[in-house]
Design a protein around this nucleic acid. Structure first.
Length: 414
RNA sequence: GUGGCUGUAGCUCAGUUGGUUAGAGCAUCGGCUUGUGGUGCCGAGGGUCGGGGGUUCAAAUCCCCUCAGCCACCCCA
């Protein structure tokens, strides 16, 4: 019977939940659309190298979270764990480098082999934006503004803060890395085991360690913002200025780092404390070296991704479902007319529920259960008079009208 | 991957120190109402007690294994 359960970390999304998911996706799509972004769709699996070469050999995603398998042609395939690498690949494959700048919106399932928790599943969904081909921090301002507007549209902006940091360009970053390692080496005996392992692999990540001992050491650690060279500093200043002009609130967090190797300069996260340890709702940054590293032309990029499930957990059911009109035939004589009427009304734009079976009482109960706004009743009396009875399901008021005026009469329920 | 908590009807949960046919509310279905729903009253169906093994005269209850969810770590959306 275990085969009748969904695979660990995957879930059926039933209509009630799916309404919230779609609402999240649509809010992102519409917001991005106002900034001129267009939707793109790339495959949900790629050759494994697309991810392993771009996300970094030391990232957890590559080392232990990828769903990878050999297909029948012995190609190594991976279910996408995130969206940016696939879009960068598509940009190169489709030769889009002459149409810059490009603004993409995407949505769809992602796959990560992790231990499930609330707000963290093995198959989950993201929406995201990518802006390619713009060196100016104006691109980052725009991308962060989209995220901010998107969260406001969902009504969760009060529960979210935008944390922001700069990782600088590669020179600044490697200078900082050295400074940080030097500092941490002086405290190596006090560092947690995890952090000692991170010291040569990815020392920046020690900055967001939750270990108490680590935190004490980190508190006095040198900050990346103090190691930025002039161009990086200027870039960051322009970004902050742009955000202020745009009216986007943010909090500087000099210890914010990103898990993936391809980020530079801008790094940000919209976080909440409403979801326990899974507080990151939207996260992103700039990735100027990614496309070149994949074998394409030097092309800067900046963008973010948001977790649909996490955001869906934070909003109420948007309802918004159209209330149907129920058709209630009484007796076999009315059946044919009712079916014909039903189809005419549907084609005229009404949402009609046909009860399929049962006596009048059963059909009325069903009409009530699906919260119909009106019931159209047709029995012997009505047939002989060439009329129908329309019952307003909220007031209980019934009106007999000539059959020919039904469609017009029902327009009051639209 | 590590540590911990939980797992009883479709849903939310009771189930006393192991002891007859495992309960409630909500939901579902039927009736009171043979052309009229929502409220009310009456009644019914529905459970391999997550799964497997063990201890015992007897296990939802105790032990082991396993699966899943949740919490923290890890990491991230």
């Amino acid at each position: 019977m275990s085969s009748l359960k969904p695979v660990r970390g995957t879930h059926d999304i039933l209509p009630g939940d799916l309404r919230r998911h779609r609402h999240v996706e649509n809010a992102a799509f519409e917001t991005a659309g106002r900034y001129g972004f267009e939707e793109i769709s790339t495959p949900i699996f790629e050759f494994t190298e697309v991810f392993s070469r771009t996300l970094g050999d030391t990232s957890d995603i590559v080392t232990k979270e990828m769903y990878t398998f050999a297909d029948k042609g012995d190609d190594l395939i991976t279910l996408r764990p995130e969206g940016t690498a696939g879009i960068a690949r598509a940009f190169i494959s489709s030769g889009l480098s002459h149409q810059l700048p490009l603004k993409f919106f995407y949505r769809g399932p992602m796959f990560r082999y992790e231990r499930p928790q609330k707000g963290r599943q093995r198959q989950f969904h993201q929406v995201g934006v990518e802006l390619l081909g713009v060196d100016s921090p104006l691109a980052d301002v725009e991308v962060i503004s989209i995220a901010s507007d998107f969260l406001s549209a969902l009504g969760v902006d009060g529960k979210v803060v935008c944390e922001l940091n700069s990782l600088g360009d590669s020179d600044s970053r490697s200078a900082y890395r050295q400074t940080l390692v030097d500092y941490l080496m002086d405290h190596i005996n006090s560092l947690s085991e995890d952090s000692r392992a991170r010291l040569d692999r990815n020392p920046l990540r020690i900055l967001d360690s939750k270990d108490k001992g680590d935190r004490a050491i980190i508190a006095d650690a040198p900050l990346i913002t103090d190691c930025l060279n002039d161009p990086s500093k200027r870039f960051f200043d322009e970004l902050l200025e742009g955000l202020e002009i745009s009216g986007v609130a943010y909090t500087l967090n000099p210890k914010l780092v990103r898990g993936l190797d391809y980020y530079c300069h801008t790094a940000f996260e919209f976080t909440t404390d409403a979801l326990g340890a899974q507080g990151a709702l939207v996260a992103g940054g700039r990735y100027d070296g990614l496309i070149k590293q994949m074998g394409g032309p030097q092309t800067p990029g900046t963008g973010w991704a948001a977790g649909v499930e996490r955001l869906a957990l934070m909003i109420d059911d948007p309802i918004g479902k159209k209330r149907p009109i129920a058709m209630i035939p009484i007796g076999n004589e009315a059946a044919e007319l009712v079916l014909r009427l039903t189809q005419e009304l549907r084609r005229a734009g009404h949402t009609i529920d046909l009860g399929y079976a049962g006596n009048m009482k059963k059909r009325m109960q069903r009409a009530n259960k699906i919260s119909a706004c009106a019931a159209v009743i047709i029995g012997e009396d009505e047939l002989s008079k060439n009329a129908v009875v329309v019952r307003d399901m909220d007031s209980g008021e019934q009106t007999e009208i000539p059959l020919s005026t039904l469609e017009d009469f029902l327009s009051r329920f639209l």
